[in-house]
Design a protein around this nucleic acid. Sequence first.
DNA 1: ATATTTGGTCAACTATAATTTACTTATACA
DNA 2: TGTATAAGTAAATTATAGTTGACCAAATAT
Lengths: 106, 106
Amino acid sequence: MSDTLSKKTLGRVVKRTEMPELSKPFSPMQLAKAITAKRTGMKLTLMDVSQALAISKPTLIKIEKGDVTVQLHNVLKVMEYLGLSFSLVSDDIAHSNEEVSDEQWY
Amino acid sequence: MSDTLSKKTLGRVVKRTEMPELSKPFSPMQLAKAITAKRTGMKLTLMDVSQALAISKPTLIKIEKGDVTVQLHNVLKVMEYLGLSFSLVSDDIAHSNEEVSDEQWY
DNA sequence: ATATTTGGTCAACTATAATTTACTTATACA
DNA sequence: TGTATAAGTAAATTATAGTTGACCAAATAT
């Protein structure tokens, strides 16, 4: 696996999954891996997050497994809690917001 | 409103909402506006998207209103169809994927 | 080695998102 | 103006995501 161990000054030894490369094209699995990586990196258990956000453990596991049949709401709550965010990418060639051109920006 | 009118060679005149600045921090409303902007820019009706993706019109409207109580699955389907994508942003200070450092990347 | 914690799964139930159908409001164009 | 198209809303039903609680299996600790 792409998991690494990290001994910390406080707490126990935890399995810490590596952060995926954020530059790669978005996929549900990339998101899932990033969430798990952040959570374990912050030494939070599923219980911790579950209690903090009032989201059940099975749902959190669905999210961390890349299952997309979950509420956007729940995913955003988890991401915000862990300090993760989206940015939008449009597949247009190039567009300027300065001037409203007649060209198609989509 | 921040809507603009555009006369097209084919079809009728449609209300086209402006594309939000993708550089701004992510919010559900920014996503909603981007989706509406892309759809109208591509001259697609809600019916078009509804039929193409087998998603009901009320659900599409929820998405385009920034309602987050929708399935991530449905949002991703719409985004992919319109040529929109996410990229992940982590609020870490700076991290390198080249070498595994002892520093916290989260 | 034993105990404890954590991750993960499962079944039954509850909550709620999604669909369908119809209706209304707004927009565009003849 | 009147007509057609599109956006948006609403109620009833269906589908399904979410929760709870128990349980098992790894992993981590003492």
